[in-house]
Amino acid sequence: MPPLLKMIGKRLLSALVLLWGVTVVTFLLVNVVPGDAAAANLSQQAYDDPEIRAAFEAKWGLDQPIWVQYVRYLGNILQGDLGTSQQTHRPVAEDLGQYVPATIEIALPAMALAIVIAVGLGMLAAMRKNRPTDTGIRSAALVGLSTPPFWLALVALYVFFYLLGWVPNGGRLSNIYDPPPAVTGMYTVDAAIAGQWDVFGDALWHLVLPVGILTALTVSGLLRFVRSAMIEVLDAEYIRSAIAKGLPRRIITWRHVFRAGLLPVLTVSGLMLASLLGGAVLVEQVLSWPGLGQYAYKSAISLDLQAILGVTLFIAVVYTLINLLVDVLYSVIDPRIGAK
C-alpha cells in the first residue's frame, strides 16, 4: 500500500477513536446536567401519574442502565439522529443542514482569500524585515488583530452599506428573490446550478461584506505566522546555498523559500479554517447571517441541549477532518514525513 494511503488510513482510525471520545463526553454532559426529561416534556398532570411517567421513561429508555442509554445514543448518532431542538422543534440534523452551508459559504472564500493575502504580505514583510514595508504590514496586522470583530462588522456595515451603499444590509438574499432550489444549501452554488444568474449575482453581492470582514480578521491572525515562518526559512543555510548558486530571485522566492515556509503556515491555517467553520458568532449576529455561529449562540442562551450537543459534535468532526487534511497536505509537501 502506498505510504500516503497507509498514513490516511491510520489517521482516519485515530480520528474515529477521537470522535468516539467526543460522543462519550457529550453524552456524559447531558447526563451530568441536572434535569428531569419527564418533567421537562410531560404536563404536570401526566407527570404526577406514576404509570404515565413509567411509560414515558420506558419509551425513551430512561429506565435502562446508563450504558444501555449510551449505546442507544451512539446508535442514534450513527443513524444521523442528533435529537430534536427545543427551539426550532425540528431535528437538529436538519437545522445543521440549513445553517452549516451558510457558514461554509462565507468561511471557505474568506479562508482562501486570507491565505493568498497573508502569504503574499507575510513573505514581503519577511524579505523586507525591519524596513518600512515590514513595519507598515506588521502595524496593519496588529490593528486588525486588536479590532473587536463585532466593532469591525458594525463599522463596515455603517461605511459600506449606510454611507456608500455598495453592499446590502446583511442577510443572504434580497427580499425580492426566493432561495434557489436547495442542492448544497449554499445560495451562490445552488443558484449557479439552477442557472438563476440574477439570484446568483444577488447572493454573491450579499457575500461581499461578511467574507470581507472574516478575511480581514483572518489575515491579521495569519500574517504574523507567515512572516515568522518565512524569516526562519530565509535564515536557513539552504537559502544561502540557493543564493550562492546565482539563481534568480523569482526561483529562490517561490521554489526555495515559499515551499519551505508553507509547512508551519499550513497548520495554523487549518486551525483557523476549523474555527471559521465553527461559525463567527459576532460577525454573523451583526450582519444577520443565519450561520452556525448564530445557531450555536441561540441554542446556548436558550439551553437547547440537543442543539448544543449537535453543534459540538459537528465542530469536533470539522476539527478532526481538517487536521487529517493538514496531515495529508504536510506529507505531500514534505517528503520526510511521508517516509516515516
Binding site: 539552504y238 546565482g246 534568480p248 519551505a260 520526510r336
Partner: peptide, 28 residues
C-alpha cells in the same frame, strides 16, 4: 554577481544536511 556565482565560482558548505534544500529532489 549572479552570472558568476554558481556558474564560474561555486561553493561547498560545511554541513550538507543544512545546505541542501530538504523539500527539493537532488535532481532539481
Amino acid at each position: 554577481l549572479d552570472t558568476v556565482r554558481g556558474n564560474r565560482i561555486a561553493i561547498v558548505f560545511q554541513d550538507p544536511s543544512a545546505a541542501l534544500h530538504p523539500l527539493l529532489t537532488i535532481g532539481t
